[in-house]
């Protein structure tokens, strides 16, 4: 009995440690772990004041429509712009009857030290001059610590590499419903434009019914 028990106990302990560490073998990276730790969907989107490229202060909870939200920073060497290019393609899949009346796009910069309203306004112009319903924004009157806490609450992992200053972060796109609840989270690295489009459309159709 002892011959079997000792290896079984060892296996059980090791299995349990890895099971707990990966939230039941479902979160192997800090990105997926932070997202899962934030809670199950749908969940309330925490309030945050933001300022748009036109210097208008707004809260997502006051929009009362679907919002597709993502986070970037302008000094990102590569991936943020790639995600915004994907967002641009998704934006153009919707017709003017949907955006901006029923759905809005919001891109928020989380580099409070370097990005400002002038920079995000200029950055927005790279995606065209006629893009109503796609707001580029910054957190308004929020310090870095409070903003980091906010990001953690919604499930975004952000880490600044000390040597380079590069901010590595989650790329998720959040679909927030008219009732200010996060209803879907898309991973742009795994989901293509049409898949995101169809899932948003499904939510919009449900709302119509």
């Amino acid at each position: 009995m002892k011959r079997v028990l000792i290896p079984v106990v060892a296996l059980t302990i090791c299995f349990t440690v890895i099971w707990k560490w990966t939230l039941g073998f479902s979160a192997f990276t800090v990105f997926s772990y932070t997202l899962q730790q934030a809670g199950t969907l749908p969940r309330t989107f925490p309030d945050l004041a933001m300022i748009s490229q036109d210097k208008e202060v707004f809260h997502l909870k006051d929009k009362h429509k679907y919002v597709l939200l993502n986070f970037v920073y302008l000094n990102c060497p590569y991936v943020c712009h790639k995600v915004n290019n994907q967002l641009e393609r998704i934006y153009h899949l919707f017709d003017s009857a949907t955006v901006p009346s029923r759905l809005e796009f919001v891109t928020v910069s989380f580099d409070l030290g370097n990005d400002d309203v002038t920079k995000i306004k200029k950055y927005r112009e790279y995606f065209g001059t006629d893009i109503p319903g796609w707001t580029f924004a910054l957190p308004y009157q929020t310090n870095q610590q409070a903003f980091d806490t906010f990001l953690h609450h919604i499930g975004i992992w952000k880490y600044t590499v000390p040597a380079t200053g590069i901010i590595n972060h989650s790329l998720y796109l959040y679909l927030i419903g008219p009732d200010n609840k996060i209803v879907r989270v898309f991973d742009p690295a795994r989901e293509n434009d049409n898949s995101v489009y169809e899932q948003i459309n499904l939510c919009l159709q449900k709302q119509s019914i």
């Binding site: 990105f31 880490y159 690295a189």
Partner: peptide
Amino acid sequence: ILLCSSFN
């Protein structure tokens, strides 16, 4: 995609 946020 980046798997470890500490590296590139």
